[in-house]
């Protein structure tokens, strides 16, 4: 019972700009974007926790917007700009502000959900660079984490905002509570 045949499913050529680099792939129409990134392009930082659009682990930025790559077909985003967690570093390859904040605030444990949080937060802080603790909690309200209880992820959002303000040389309006100790 071991017939070995090559796949003959019809495929499509697509090109994506992933983390600033033009990438090409030949994929069947049903290939999920998450699988395309992970298995065709080897960018395994994007994780899948449910493959039904609920956990957010697979969140990537498509043309700057956070989207669940497990709910997108790779062919449907042909020609798009994609940012994954691998692309959330600073231009010199060192940890980006959100990544640094997660490390400083102990915003991760197993790290499986983390890429989805980092991409989501990176996009959020671009829209709202100065969130309150309540807004920070709201901003991550669509992602599941089973390890951290979210408290340190909320702190990470606030800390990342602070780092970004520091780096842009703009002291900004200090948001209440920063670093490790978010208080209700």
């Amino acid at each position: 019972m071991t017939p070995d045949r090559g796949p003959t499913e019809q495929t499509h050529d697509i090109s994506l700009t992933v983390n600033g680099v033009l990438r090409q792939a030949r994929v069947p129409a049903r290939r999920l974007l998450s699988d395309c990134l992970r298995h065709d392009l080897g960018l395994t930082g994007t994780h899948v926790g449910c493959e039904h659009g609920v956990c957010g682990a697979c969140t990537v930025l498509v043309n700057g917007q956070p989207m669940r790559s497990c709910l997108l077909l790779a062919v449907s985003v042909d020609g798009s700009e994609i940012t994954t967690v691998e692309g959330c570093t600073d231009p010199d390859g060192s940890l980006g502000p959100v990544q640094r904040a997660f490390m400083e605030c102990h915003g991760l444990q197993c790290g499986f959900c983390t890429p989805g949080f980092i991409t989501t937060i990176a996009a959020y802080l671009r829209r709202n660079p100065n969130p309150t603790p309540e807004q920070a909690r709201e901003a991550i309200g669509g992602n599941l984490c089973r390890c951290t209880g979210y408290q340190n992820i909320v702190a990470s959002v606030l800390r990342a905002a602070e780092i970004m303000r520091e780096e842009s040389g703009d002291a900004g309006v200090p948001a209440a509570g920063h670093g490790r100790g978010e208080r209700a």
Partner: peptide
Amino acid sequence: PRREDPRLVTGQGRYLDDLGA
């Protein structure tokens, strides 16, 4: 801070399905 974090926050973790391409 944790030693394991720099890898994990940059997508360089190696979970089971990241292996065996």
